[in-house]
Design a protein around this nucleic acid. Structure first.
Length: 811
DNA sequence: CCAGGTCACAAC
DNA sequence: TTGTGACCTGGC
C-alpha cells in the first residue's frame, strides 16, 4: 500500500505529493485525509494523506520508498471535500497546498518537528562519569534538544562527541498541541435497593454523604460531576473519598469539552411573526433549500430590517432537510447577542468558532463538528472550513466586511470559498448586508446572485434622522471643541431624557503618533517606513510592524523643543472632553486598551445594556451589529478621516461606516438621530449616507471605479517583493514584471514596479507590481509559471515575493 | 592542513 | 523549511 502525502514544508519546491510505503500495521488506520508523520530528508515531519494506492505493483521502484511512521488520528481530520477545497485554494491563491490545509484545521493539530537526544544501550553508570547531562539522559532516556541546550549549556558542546562514540543518538519526533480537558465524575456502584439501604446505614451526621447518595437515587444511571456537586450542593472532596473507599461509588476522569458558554442559560425565544417583506425574501430562499440545488442570494436589507430572523428561519429549514448550516459573522466576539440568539434557537446543536477562544476551546468546538454532534456553526472567517459533510446553507452576515479577507497566506476571501463550497455541495449561499460590497452588488445586478431587498425597518420604524455638521463652520463660529454645537446640544438632550448614545471615533487619522509641535518632526521607526505609536502604559513609542521600541523622548531630536508629545489615543481624548463638558456623564470606553482582557468586551457591553453608562464610546468595534433599545443618538466625531486614505475603497468604507454607525440608533420604540461631523459634507459618500441611499452611492462609486479602473470593473493582483537591498529588490520586481508583461492579455494593465506605499518594513525594502485585468482566464496558471521562473532567477538572491489575489490592503 | 563559515540543493 | 556536504577562507 502506498500513500501520497503532502508534507509540512510550505515552499513551492516541495509543493507536491510524495509517495510513502504504508507498513502493514498502519493499513487499517490510514485514510485519505489522515494526518501522518513521515521521514523527510534527514528529519521527520507532519504530512497529510491526499491519496492511497492499494496496489503496490502498480508503482515502479517502490523499494526506494520510505515508510509512514505514524498515523496521528483514528478519524482523519480532513474530509474529502476539505481536501478538494484545499487543492482549489492552493491554485486559486497561489499558496502551498499544506498551507491551505493548515488554515482549515485548528492550530493544535499542527505538528512541530523536534529533535530529541536519546540514550543508547551503551550508556551505563560508568559511561556517565561526572556528566550531569549523561546522568539525566541515563535516567530519562530522552530529552528535547532545545532543553539540553538550555539546561546543560556548558556540556552542549560535548554532545557531538558522545554521539560519535555511540553513547547518544538523535531522533525526531513530531508533536502536536492536542490537550484534552478531564473532569471528575462520580458514578453509583449500587442498585436502587442497595442505595436506599446504604443511605439508611449512614450515621446521622454524615450529611454530605447522604446527600450524594440521595442525588444518585434521583439521577439513576447518570454520572454526577464533582464540580457540580461542589458548586450546587457544597459537597467537598472527603465525603466522596469515603464513599469511594466503601466501594459504593466510583470517581472517574471523563473527558469534557472546554465550553466558554457552559453555565450560561439561554432563553428560548418565541419565533417571531414574519413581516410581509421577510416572508417575501424567505420564499425563494426556502424554495432553493427545499430543492437542494445550488443557489446564491444577496440580501440587501437596511439596518434593523430583520435579516437575522430570515437567516435563522433558513437555517432551521436546512436542518429539517437533514443538512448542515454555516453562519459567518465578521468577528463573533463582537456580537455576543448574535451567539445568544443562536444558542437560544438551536441549543446544543451549535458550535461557535471565533478568535477570542483559546486554542483548546477552538479544538473542542471543532471536534463537536467533526463528530457530528452539532449541525450549525457560527463563526468568523475560518468557520467556512467547518468539517461538515453535507453543507446545505452558508450565510455570510455583513458580507462587505473586510475581515472576511485573510491577510496572510493563504490570502483567501471567505465569500469566495463559501461560493465554491455552496456550488460543490449543491447548497444555498445567502449573503446579507445593509451596505453590500460593490463587487457583490455588481454581480447581483448582473444576475450572478439573486438580489433580495428589505428596504424598511421592522415594525415600520423610521430610519434615524441624520444631521450633517460642517466642522469648518464650527471653527468659523469660534467653536474649537471636537464636539459641534449640534452634537453638544443633542448629548445634553439625551442625558436629560436618560436615553443612551453611541459615539464613534474613526480611529485612523487620530492615531497615536508622536509629533513635535514646534518643528513638526514625527518619530519614525528606524527599520520600517512608518510612524511610531505611543504606548501609554510604559511611556514608550513602538513600531506596529517590527516591535522596535524606544522611550518617549522629552526633547525633540531635531529642534530640542520640549513640545514633543503624542497625539492622544483618540478615544481617551474624547472621553476626557466629554467628562469636562458634561460633569457626571458615564462613559463606557471601548478600545484596544479596555478590551484586551478576555471577556472584557462582553462585560463592557453588558454594563451598557443594563444602563450603567450613558455613552458607549469607541472605534470601529462598536459600529457593527449592536442592538440596544435605549440608544437614540449616534455621533460620529470625524467622518472623513477614512475618506482620504490612499485606498480605492476609501469612499466605500466611509459610506459603510456611516451607515452602520447610524444603524445603531432608534431601532426600537424611541426615534433616533445621527450626527455626522465632517470637513467635507459635499462628498457623495456622506451625502448618500445621510439619505440612507445605497443605490445612489453605488451609482456614483461605480462611476469612480470605472474611471480609475478598479474593481468591480477590473480585478486586481498585487505582487509584493522585499529585500534588504534596493537594487536587488528592484531587479526581482522587474524580472517578474517582464515575464508577465510578455504573456498577459492586451487588455490587462501591469502597473509598476514601484516602491510600496510602506517602502520599508523590518529593514527590508518593498516594491510592488499591480495587475489590473478584466479577462484573464488562465491567470492562476500564468502566475504559477511566472513564480517558477522568478524562483529560478531568485536562486542566487533571496527576494521574498507574495502574491495577493483580489487584495484589500494595498500597502 | 584543518577549523569554521557560507551556500546550493534535495527531500518519496 | 532544514540538514548536509561541497567549497572557500583564514589562521597557523
Amino acid at each position: 500500500m502506498i500513500a501520497q502525502i503532502i508534507v509540512d514544508v510550505p515552499v513551492n519546491r516541495t509543493n507536491r505529493p510524495f509517495d510513502y510505503h504504508v507498513p502493514p500495521w498502519l493499513r487499517p488506520l490510514i485514510r485519505v485525509g489522515s494526518r501522518v508523520v513521515v521521514p523527510f530528508g534527514p528529519r521527520q515531519l507532519q504530512g497529510y494523506v491526499i491519496g492511497i494506492v492499494e496496489d503496490d505493483e502498480a508503482l515502479p521502484d517502490r523499494s526506494r520508498l520510505k515508510d509512514v511512521v505514524q498515523v496521528q488520528d483514528d478519524t482523519p481530520p480532513l474530509t474529502p471535500e476539505l481536501l478538494k477545497m484545499s487543492e482549489w485554494m492552493s491554485k486559486q491563491y497561489l499558496c502551498p497546498w499544506v498551507t491551505a490545509v493548515q488554515a482549515m484545521l485548528p492550530a493544535v493539530l499542527k505538528g512541530k518537528s523536534e529533535k530529541w537526544l536519546t540514550a543508547t544501550d551503551a550508556l551505563d553508570e560508568e559511561a556517565c562519569g561526572r556528566s550531569g547531562l549523561l546522568w539525566e539522559l541515563f535516567r530519562k532516556r530522552q530529552l528535547p534538544l532545545t532543553e539540553v541546550e538550555k539546561q546543560f549549556a556548558e556540556e552542549y558542546l560535548l554532545v557531538p562527541g558522545w554521539i560519535q562514540s555511540g553513547l547518544l543518538a538523535t531522533e525526531y519526533q513530531v508533536r502536536d498541541k492536542i490537550t484534552r480537558k478531564q473532569q471528575s465524575f462520580v458514578r453509583s456502584l449500587l442498585d436502587e435497593g442497595k442505595l436506599e439501604e446504604a443511605i439508611g446505614s449512614l450515621p446521622a451526621r454524615a450529611e454530605q454523604m447522604r446527600r450524594v447518595l440521595q442525588l444518585m437515587l434521583v439521577h439513576k444511571e447518570q454520572s454526577l460531576s464533582v464540580q457540580m456537586l461542589r458548586d450546587e450542593y457544597g459537597i467537598t472532596r472527603s465525603p466522596l473519598k469515603s464513599l469511594e473507599s466503601k466501594g459504593w461509588i466510583a470517581i472517574e476522569q471523563v473527558e469534557v469539552y472546554r465550553d466558554p458558554y457552559a453555565n450560561r442559560r439561554f432563553q428560548e425565544k418565541q419565533k417571531p411573526v414574519f413581516t410581509p417583506v421577510q416572508k417575501e425574501v424567505l420564499t425563494p430562499i426556502l424554495q432553493s433549500i427545499e430543492s437542494g440545488t445550488y443557489a446564491s442570494y444577496l440580501l440587501h436589507g437596511v439596518t434593523g430590517s430583520g435579516k437575522t430572523e430570515v437567516y435563522l428561519e433558513a437555517i432551521e429549514r436546512t436542518l429539517e432537510k437533514g443538512r448542515e448550516a454555516i453562519f459567518l459573522v465578521p468577528e463573533i466576539s463582537l456580537t455576543p447577542q448574535m451567539v445568544e440568539r443562536f444558542k437560544a434557537r438551536f441549543g446544543a446543536d451549535v458550535a461557535v468558532l471565533h478568535s477570542a477562544l483559546s486554542q483548546g476551546e477552538r479544538y473542542d468546538e471543532w471536534r463537536k463538528i467533526i463528530r457530528k454532534q452539532v449541525r450549525v456553526v457560527v463563526g468568523a472567517r475560518s468557520a467556512i472550513f467547518a468539517p461538515f459533510r453535507n453543507v446545505g446553507l452558508i450565510v455570510i452576515d455583513e458580507e462587505h466586511e473586510s475581515s472576511y479577507k485573510q491577510e496572510e497566506t493563504p490570502r483567501y476571501h471567505a465569500r469566495e470559498v463559501a461560493l465554491w463550497r455552496a456550488k460543490e455541495n449543491q447548497g444555498v449561499l445567502v449573503m446579507g448586508s445593509a451596505t453590500p460590497a460593490l463587487e457583490t452588488y455588481a454581480l447581483a445586478t448582473r444576475g450572478r446572485y439573486e438580489l433580495l431587498r428589505m428596504p424598511e425597518r421592522v415594525g415600520n420604524r423610521p430610519m434615524p434622522e441624520v444631521h450633517v455638521v460642517d466642522m469648518r463652520e464650527e471653527l468659523q463660529a469660534q467653536n474649537r471643541s471636537m464636539f459641534s454645537r449640534k452634537l453638544h446640544e443633542m448629548i445634553a438632550d439625551r442625558l436629560a431624557k436618560e436615553e443612551q448614545m453611541v459615539i464613534f471615533l474613526n480611529r485612523r487619522g487620530f492615531s497615536t503618533f508622536v509629533m513635535c509641535r514646534s518643528c513638526g518632526y514625527t518619530m519614525r521607526c528606524i527599520h520600517c517606513d512608518i510612524s511610531l505609536t505611543y504606548h501609554k502604559t510604559n511611556h514608550t513609542a513602538r513600531c506596529h510592524y517590527c516591535g522596535y521600541t524606544i522611550a518617549q523622548p522629552k526633547h525633540c531630536p531635531e529642534c530640542q523643543s520640549e513640545h514633543i508629545r503624542f497625539f492622544g489615543t483618540g478615544t481617551q481624548k474624547v472621553e476626557a472632553e466629554l467628562a469636562k463638558l458634561f460633569p457626571g456623564i458615564r462613559v463606557i470606553r471601548m478600545d484596544v486598551d479596555t478590551t484586551s482582557k478576555k471577556g472584557s468586551h462582553e462585560e463592557l457591553l453588558n454594563k451598557f445594556r443594563t444602563g450603567q453608562g450613558d455613552v458607549l464610546l469607541g472605534t470601529q468595534m462598536i459600529a457593527k451589529g449592536l442592538d440596544f433599545p435605549r440608544v437614540t443618538l449616534a455621533g460620529i466625531i470625524a467622518a472623513d478621516t477614512s475618506l482620504h486614505l490612499p485606498d480605492f475603497r476609501a469612499a466605500e468604507k466611509t459610506f459603510q461606516l456611516l451607515t452602520q454607525v447610524g444603524g445603531r440608533a432608534g431601532r426600537h420604540e424611541l426615534d433616533g438621530d445621527v450626527v455626522i461631523q465632517t470637513y467635507t459634507p459635499e462628498h457623495y459618500s456622506i451625502i448618500h449616507a445621510t439619505k440612507h441611499d445605497y443605490p445612489a452611492f453605488y451609482q456614483d462609486e461605480m462611476m469612480q471605479r470605472r474611471r480609475t479602473g478598479y474593481p468591480p470593473y477590473f480585478r486586481l493582483v498585487l505582487i509584493t517583493f522585499s529585500h534588504e537591498d534596493v537594487p536587488v529588490v528592484i531587479r526581482g520586481a522587474h524580472t517578474m514584471a517582464d515575464y508577465l508583461r510578455q504573456r498577459l492579455a492586451q487588455t490587462t494593465v501591469l502597473l509598476g514596479p514601484v516602491a510600496s506605499p510602506i517602502a520599508r518594513v523590518k529593514d527590508r525594502f518593498r516594491f510592488q507590481i499591480m495587475l489590473k485585468y478584466r479577462d484573464e482566464p488562465q491567470l492562476s496558471d500564468l502566475l504559477a509559471q511566472a513564480t517558477a521562473a522568478f524562483e529560478e532567477w531568485n536562486k542566487q538572491q533571496k527576494v521574498l515575493m507574495t502574491i495577493d489575489v483580489d487584495p484589500y490592503v494595498l500597502l
